[in-house]
Design a protein around this nucleic acid. Structure first.
Length: 327
DNA sequence: CATCAGGGCCCTG
DNA sequence: CAGGGCCCTGAT
């Protein structure tokens, strides 16, 4: 809650070994994600808060390996000393969320000669997809992305963090940590609307319920097949094909999940893959057909090319892209 | 000033 | 299956 800052003074050190090859920076920082107060990145280091089994944590990942011999030093900051068993579970969870245990050898071999994808694979061998949040947290973010500008999403998340999250300090930085789903059960739609989330208030409450009541268990949902996961997600009020698509890929790591392209993505893809004027975009059907060549790695392939564009944007001005991003 | 579309989704007909 | 409405914000 606002006002009190939790100081996460206790530290525990862990070593993580992603399966080689592994490129740290493009895996641990995604420039297309909107900035939020739960994370920070600089070359070779990522800070991130995490709520795990009810405990707010501060994570500091440092790259101490190479692409061929990956190694990450992870400092876990917490209020109290953490038990060995807790840390073991945490390590497993982090390996899952950050996709460290995935072997991308086949992907690399299959597409290293692809005209567009090949050079990016060579530049960033073993780049992972990343979802530092839990499923519930990702759903909240997904709802806050809908039908608004980036700036508005940023504001709404900030207000929610201030109202329901916890402010924490670790490693000399202040961050916010996500709230537990059950916290929002005490809230009404009117109270949420007062925070200017608009009609999303209803969705927020409706997605919160099954998590707070334990009707959806993320860990067991991971073991279900993709179609069952899709049905569980789409049945949630306020969750449609766009949000489900992101989650099946980012959270459940289905590299082939690509069946929905939203209008803003369509415009960017038209320029990126067909060099066509975004104002006169290539039909979605045609885009999807183009991606067929990437088979079971469709969305992963698009992710590589997409991230490459956003990294370029950090260093150079890309006028056509700026026009399509409403900040 | 007013108007409008947006990094979707739900609901209606 | 197409299209209107939704909260708010910033662009025009």
């Amino acid at each position: 809650m606002k006002g009190t800052i939790l100081r996460l003074k206790n530290q525990a050190g862990l070593i993580l070994i992603p399966i080689a090859p592994f490129s740290f920076d493009p895996s641990m920082h995604k420039p297309d994600h909107f900035p939020s107060q739960d994370t920070k990145w600089e070359q070779g280091i990522r800070w991130q808060t995490m709520l795990w089994q009810g405990k707010p944590l501060g994570l500091k990942f440092e790259n101490i390996g190479t692409i061929g011999k990956p190694k990450i030093k992870l400092n876990v900051f917490s209020e109290d000393k953490l038990e060995k068993k807790y840390l073991e579970g945490l390590k497993e969870e982090i390996n899952y969320r950050y996709d460290f245990n995935t072997d991308l050898t086949e992907f690399n071999q299959k597409f290293r000669d692809d005209k567009q994808l090949g050079p990016i694979i060579k530049k960033w061998p073993g780049m992972r997809i990343m979802s530092p949040q839990s499923l519930y947290e990702y759903l909240v973010i997904g709802i806050m992305l809908q039908n608004c500008t980036v700036g508005r999403s940023v504001n709404m998340m900030q207000i929610l963090f201030e109202k329901y999250g916890k402010e924490v300090k670790f490693d000399g930085n202040k961050f916010f940590c996500f709230w537990e789903a059950k916290i929002l059960l005490r809230t009404t739609e009117e109270q949420l609307r007062a925070l200017k989330v608009g009609y999303r208030a209803k969705s927020l409450l409706r997605i919160t319920e099954p998590f707070a009541k334990g009707e959806i268990n993320e860990i067991s949902l991971r073991k279900k097949d993709e179609e069952e996961q899709r049905e569980t997600l789409i049945s949630l009020y306020g969750v449609g094909p766009a949000t489900v698509g992101y989650i099946l890929f980012d959270v459940f790591k289905h590299y082939a999940e690509l069946r929905h392209i939203s209008p803003w993505e369509q415009k960017i893809y038209s320029k990126l893959f067909f060099d066509k004027d975004p104002e006169n975009p290539v039909p979605v059907k045609k885009l999807l057909k183009h991606f067929e060549k990437y088979g079971n790695y469709k969305q992963l392939a698009v992710h590589y090319i997409w991230e490459d564009l956003w990294w370029k944007r950090k260093n150079e001005h890309i006028p056509w892209l700026e026009k399509l991003i409403r900040v």
